[in-house]
Design a binder for these strands. Structure first.
Lengths: 144, 144
DNA sequence: CAATCTTACTTGCATATTGCAAGTGAAAAA
DNA sequence: TTTTTCACTTGCAATATGCAAGTAAGATTG
């Protein structure tokens, strides 16, 4: 089983461009923050996040992130209405990107959430490890 | 003189949200890549980059990046038509963000530009230092 | 077991952003 | 003096975003 899909049509082959095409919008990274840092896993949790994403946009972004293999979805076994969103290994690997974006903004802008910032400043590696641990239980083998 | 401006109205105070509001679109990070990695400094150079940005969008993004203090502009002394764009310290500090985005895409997607990828894999710190060196001469003291 | 509530969406429509093609004006080059 | 270059701007069509109000399926309540 191949670890990478054949390249979709991109504006260029540059790896930064690939990242930007997948993540370069006003919501995707915030959804990933909610999963990675806050442990959110359901549609309603994302909806109620501080930035107030519209439900149609949220549905669209979740679909896109899944199509890129960054998140996975499954139905909740004990509640047939609920959909559980989870990070794939590819999604977990975005932790360093999120970390650097947080540290950059914390250095150059006035921001809140200093607890998170200090956690990241204290140890980027430790943060990555904690994200991996948080999501370790949810890895489904088929995800890539 | 304060090092940070008072907070503009944001959707939330989260540092990741601040980064996303400044950089979360399909072009800003590519322009910064062109400056940081390729040494581009003029409008026409950005225009001719692989991804083919439209000139009106480019003008808008350059204005935005300058308004955030990420880049600076000056007229070329020897050619009155030319405008020279440069990275500020704040812009240079985005090198780790770019690095992690490049490494993430290189790991999970099919991409080109493997020379750059290997350079970044070989040493993130060294890359940051090289960006700083490249732009050291262009620091104007008033930039923040 | 019928009514109500929750959950994860979808739909319709107004507004904003993006992208393309074709200018424009000032400065340099021929 | 004409042409070219440079950094944009303008007009307009296409696309994306955002808001408010649904909706369908499953769970809970009386």
């Amino acid at each position: 089983m191949p670890r990478k899909k054949p390249p979709p049509k991109r504006r260029s082959g540059c790896p930064l461009n690939a990242s930007v095409e997948m993540l370069g919008d006003r919501w995707s990274l915030l959804i990933l923050r909610d999963m990675m840092i806050r442990g959110y896993r359901s549609f309603n949790e994302f909806l109620q996040s501080d930035e107030k994403i519209a439900s149609n946009i949220l549905a669209d972004r979740l679909r896109r992130l899944e199509s890129y293999g960054i998140i996975g979805t499954e139905r909740d076994a004990s509640d047939g209405r609920k959909v559980i969103y989870s990070l794939t290994a590819k999604g977990i690997d975005l932790a360093p990107v999120l970390t650097e974006m947080v540290l950059w903004a914390a250095r150059h802008e006035v921001t809140e959430n200093q607890a998170l910032v200090r956690q990241m400043q204290a140890g980027k590696e430790r943060f990555l490890v904690s994200v991996r641990e948080k999501w370790a239980e949810k890895q489904d083998p088929g995800a890539e």
